[in-house]
Simulated assay, not measured.
Amino acid sequence: MSTSLEMSSVDLSGLCDRVLAIYVPEGHILRLEENNNFEIRSDDIWVITYPKCGTTWTQEIVWLVCNNADTETANTVELDTRFPFFEYPFTNQKRVIRKMPSPRLIKTHLALPVLPHQIREKKPKIIYTMRNPKDTCVSMYHFVKLLTPINYKGNFEEFTKEFFMGVTVGHGSFWDHHRDYWRLKNEMNILILKYEDLITDLAKEVKRIAAFLEKELTEEQVQTIVEHCTFKTMKDNSASNQSHIQNMGLMRAGMGNFMRKGKIGDWKNYFTPELNDMVDQLNKKYLEPEGLTFDYE
């Protein structure tokens, strides 16, 4: 993959329960020890995803569930302030997170083996949102093309083959990431969501999240959250649509937005039969034996 960032393969065997090679920016490598030793609180709430799998959407829903459907604040205070990004690459958000009152709401894309070590002991609540690999790939392709620090020049076919080899923007293999968290689905402190279910029946998924977080919501509050968290509403909300990334000069102007389509099945507009067969075979190899399946339309 052609990028303007220096990417390195790091052997994490000293930090993980198993050997794992992840291609990451050099700055990430320098922070691995800091990440590993970060102090966890048992009442933390972590939203974890592979990139472009519904992270922002899940964050906004979780924040509203935890804050009595306070859409006024959600419309005026940036989501990254309300729900900081643990491994944010441009400023050290861990200093901010350490000072946050409990319960802290924290976002991360980190693969399971490189999460802070204390997560295994303290068992905070974790909400993991997954998405079908084909739509994830399309969304990631458009996102990477927007990013000025990466300057990706490849076409969609090249990107897809690289993406599913795990050589992407710093979070390892799509397959390992999803599979590792899926294997924890029966843990009491883990809730697994699927992007496709959020699209199909958002109210039902809001109620699942509320029940998991032990929050009582009225039907009116559920509907308020549903209306606030439609794709169109969030795309138009400057507090949650990540437009500040473009304002910082990190996304190319006039080439699209962080929030693009938010639908199931857009992959059909991009995948050739060859690419489709490749992903189907990888899916059968890595996810289907685990009982993990997705809706694709």
Rank of each mutant, 00 (worst) to 15 (best):
Y181W: 04
L191Q: 11
E162W: 08
R131W: 00
I192F: 07
E121V: 00
L193H: 10
F164E: 03
D176P: 06
D176L: 08
E220K: 05
E158Y: 06
V206R: 07
T148D: 03
S139C: 02
V169T: 13
E157W: 09
V167G: 04
K123T: 10
E205M: 11
L115M: 10
E121D: 13
K194E: 13
P103G: 07
E121M: 07
L112V: 03
Y152V: 04
F156C: 01
M130N: 01
L198A: 07
L110S: 10
F143N: 02
K185M: 03
R208T: 00
L202D: 12
L147H: 08
D197N: 13
N132H: 05
T200H: 08
I199C: 14
N186Y: 10
L147W: 08
F156D: 00
I127N: 03
P113Q: 01
P133K: 15
V169F: 09
F156R: 05
H171A: 11
C137E: 00
H142K: 06
V114S: 09
N186F: 14
M140Y: 13
S102I: 00
G166I: 04
N189F: 03
M140L: 03
N189I: 01
Q221E: 12
V206H: 12
I127P: 00
E162I: 14
N132S: 01
F159D: 11
R120A: 11
K125E: 06
K215E: 10
D180Q: 06
I190M: 04
F164H: 06
N186L: 07
V114G: 09
L217E: 01
F212R: 04
L193C: 09
E216A: 01
G170E: 15
I127R: 01
E158I: 04
T168P: 12
S173W: 06
H117L: 15
L184K: 02
L191N: 10
V206G: 08
V206W: 12
V144S: 06
K207E: 15
Y152K: 10
